[in-house]
């Protein structure tokens, strides 16, 4: 078993007082993917909180603040344990059986949410690249490994080159991006090839030399018949293992934003985030 300590911190400062605010935080490690042993969180407003489930069943922390404030911070710490994973998968199915299965109507209907295009995973009509195509000649897992390294080579990791609303079209134009761009592109290509894929947000162990650990990380999961959902991280050209501490999944980034707020205020805001993940 591996043990990880996680600290998540966010601080928002507002130019003008905020009269009222609703915040939803999606930062609690998912207890299906690992064991969450010590979980603590606080916020600046000393609010009572409610943990509710989002539409995919992940826990969100809700704050409703009705007293004026100019600063909001939130802090979470957790200890989690996870068995070591050797991410080497072999499907018992033949490539042609896999191909047939994912093209069956029932399979597509049952996984429709992760096959539908979204704003952030929409592939532009004209693309200058030929992406690897899934044709049923090799196993899906193998295809996805190939796709992962293809994207790893296609894009240059470049912090702050994009933001959370950057469409794929722009990412392909500048050939730069951060983890969510790799994930969106991966998902988009999977869906085009009728492989259900979803966006995953989480923490990544900082001690192991990965890219994208200073903030929350993002990767993708694809559904492989008879294997289930398997995580692929094109940013690091890896299949996700026990170093990947999942928070939530969804159809794209917007289902997994760590913090969403609706505020009544007039001015701008400044945010600081920090993530610390240590491995004992």
């Amino acid at each position: 078993m591996e043990e990880f300590y996680i600290e998540y911190f966010i601080e928002n400062k507002y130019e003008a007082p905020v009269r009222k605010a609703n915040f939803q935080l999606l930062v609690i490690p998912d207890s299906n993917s690992q064991q969450v042993q010590e979980l603590k969180f606080y916020c600046s407003e000393n609010q009572e909180t409610l943990i509710s489930k989002n539409i995919f069943g992940f826990e969100i922390i809700n704050y409703y603040i009705s007293n004026p404030f100019t600063e909001f911070w939130f802090k979470l710490s957790a200890k989690i344990t996870k068995p070591e994973i050797n991410p080497f998968y072999i499907s018992p199915l033949l490539p042609s059986d896999e191909y047939e299965l994912i093209h069956s109507l029932d399979f597509q209907i049952d996984n429709s949410l992760f096959l539908r295009s979204t704003d952030l995973t929409k592939m532009p009509a004209l693309v200058n690249y030929t992406f690897p195509e899934y044709n049923g000649e090799i196993q899906i897992f193998e295809y996805l490994l190939h796709l992962t390294s293809f994207l790893y080579q296609l894009l240059e990791y470049s912090p702050e080159s994009t933001d959370v609303n950057t469409p794929i079209e722009e990412v392909l134009r500048i050939r730069k991006g951060v983890c969510q761009d790799y994930a969106h592109l991966f998902i988009s290509i999977c869906r085009q090839n009728k492989i259900p894929a979803r966006y995953v947000s989480g923490y990544l162990n900082q001690g192991a030399g990965f890219t994208g650990t200073s903030q929350l990380h993002a990767w993708a999961e694809a559904l492989i018949p008879d294997l289930g959902w398997v995580g692929f991280d094109a940013t690091n050209n890896l299949v996700s293992d026990h170093h990947y501490i999942k928070i939530a999944h969804g159809t794209d980034y917007r289902d997994c934003s760590p913090i969403i707020g609706v505020l009544e205020t007039t001015g701008a805001q400044k945010s600081i985030h920090s993530v610390i993940v240590t491995n004992q």
Binding site: I55, L105, D106, I109, D110, S112, L113, R116, T251
Partner: peptide, 28 residues
């Protein structure tokens, strides 16, 4: 359950490509 789609009475694509099909309502 989406039976009418599985039974091919209404094309599944027609429903899933509609922006008015809300994921927030699935299984609720």
């Amino acid at each position: 359950r989406k039976l009418i789609l599985k039974d091919k009475v209404v094309p599944a694509d027609l429903i899933f490509s509609s922006k008015n099909y809300l994921k927030e309502m699935v299984d609720f």
